[in-house]
Amino acid sequence: MTDPGYNFAYLDEATKRMIRRALLKAIAIPGHQIPFGAREMPLPYGWGTGGIQVTASILGPDDTLKVIDQGADDTTNAVSIRRFFHRVAGVQVTTRTAEATIIQTRHRIPERPLTEGQVMVFQVPMPEPLFKLEPRLAETRRLHALGDYSLAQVKLYEDIARQGEGGSAYSHPVMVNHRYLMSPSPIPGFDNPKLHMSPALMLFGAGREKKIYAVPPYTSVVSLDFDDHPFRPVRAPHACAACGSTTSYLDEIVTDDRGGRMFVCSDTDHCAENQMARKAAE
């Protein structure tokens, strides 16, 4: 049941309206960061306040909400946020990707292909893809206006020249609709291709940095790379110890202090589904 001391989904209606207007403009200008008046939330900055504000502004009583952190529904922060919305909005919650209409996430995109009825809400710590190269916001805003991404290209080129491969293992920047360079949030590069031409709407909320941006469904999203050094998403070269998957993104788990390791799916729902399918087949 919803907490009677708070408005539905915690935020007041004026705040929701402000965020909703920003969301519509974000969708109309794919990949462009829109400043918004992020509010203090009852969870600390950096813990998903941007994602929570976006979710609170779109969520309705007919929605089914899934919250993941690092791909898993049972991680503490995911549990905490799911409880929060259950408490302040009384909505149906689920761990099943297939059943969710809204999926709030930190650092992963589910393995199961998303559908047209779904909205992804990403928690974003640093929305500015250029911040490591140019920390001044006035300057990066100018570079985005000009579409001047030579800084990022030079950095990538230098990485390739030095390490033989380019780019970041996570948060690897993407070009959206051939116009804006965008941070996909700190998802592993493995997940970047899932943003491209996805049937689902992707919303990004950065609370502390007070920015909202979006990738509409069926939109071109290309990881920054060079023709002769194409972007290569990586995963640990193992099979999941629980479900046997050789295609899912894996967590490395240390089993002892003598170098023991095992690998299991980071997406807990996907792993459970695989295990169930395996049992049914037996």
């Binding site: 929701k16 519509l24 969708i27 502004s57 779109i58 969520l59």
Partner: peptide, 8 residues
């Protein structure tokens, strides 16, 4: 909320 979802 329903109006917004339709607009979104």
């Amino acid at each position: 909320q329903a109006g917004f979802r339709a607009l979104m």
